[in-house]
C-alpha cells in the first residue's frame, strides 16, 4: 500500500469493502494522521514521507479521522465511485468556479448581461460552399425561438449594458 489505500475491510456477511481511496499527491506527499475509507469509514493511521508509506496504514478503530480522500472508487464493482465533496466520505475540492459543477457542456443562449450568444447545440446548418460562412449571424432566421426570447427579455428590461 502507498498513496492509495485499497481498503479490504471485512464488512461481515462475506462482504469486503474493496474500495480504492486515492490519496492525492500534493496533500499527502508528506503527511501524518488518520484518514477514513470513503466507503466503510474505517480509520487508518498513515505516515507518509516523500510519497512513501513510512508507517501504516494501521486500523484505528473508534478514532476520529483527520481527513478524507478526495475521491474513491470500486474497480471491482462497476467503478462505483464517491465524487469529491460528499460529507463524511470525501473532502471537497475547493477549486470550483461556480456553486455547481457540471463537467459537461453548459447550454448557454444568453450572456450574463442577457444578450444572445451561440453557446448551445445543435445549431442549424448555415455554411455555404466548402464550409464558408459570412459575417452575420442571422439569428432571427436560424434560431427564431431564441430571437423571440430575446425580444421578451428586452421587454422585461432584463437586457443590460454590463
Amino acid at each position: 500500500m502507498c498513496d492509495i489505500i485499497w481498503c479490504k475491510k471485512d464488512l461481515g456477511d462475506g462482504k469486503v469493502c474493496d474500495t480504492v481511496n486515492y490519496l492525492d499527491p500534493y496533500c499527502f506527499w508528506n503527511w501524518e494522521g488518520k484518514v477514513a475509507c470513503a466507503h466503510c469509514g474505517t480509520v487508518y493511521y498513515i505516515h507518509m514521507i516523500q510519497g512513501h508509506m513510512y508507517a501504516g496504514p494501521d486500523e484505528k478503530p473508534g478514532e476520529k479521522p483527520d481527513i478524507y480522500p478526495l475521491y474513491a472508487d470500486q474497480p471491482n464493482n462497476g467503478y462505483f465511485n464517491y465524487l469529491p465533496g460528499i460529507e463524511g466520505r470525501t473532502r471537497p475540492y475547493t477549486c470550483l468556479p461556480r456553486h455547481i459543477y457540471l463537467g459537461k457542456a453548459d447550454m448557454v443562449k444568453f450572456s450574463i448581461r442577457g444578450r444572445p450568444v451561440r453557446g448551445w447545440r445543435p445549431q442549424p446548418p448555415s455554411a455555404g460552399i466548402a464550409g464558408s460562412q459570412g459575417f452575420f449571424w442571422d439569428i432571427e432566421k436560424l434560431s427564431p425561438e431564441v430571437w423571440e426570447e430575446y425580444q421578451e427579455r428586452i421587454r422585461k428590461g432584463e437586457v443590460k449594458d454590463w
Binding site: 468556479p97 457540471l102 463537467g103 459537461k104 457542456a105 453548459d106 451561440r118 447545440r121 445549431q123 455554411a127
Partner: peptide
Amino acid sequence: PFNEAYLYPLHD
C-alpha cells in the same frame, strides 16, 4: 474549462 463552455458551430 471543466468541459463546460463551448460556442457553436464548429463546422456544419
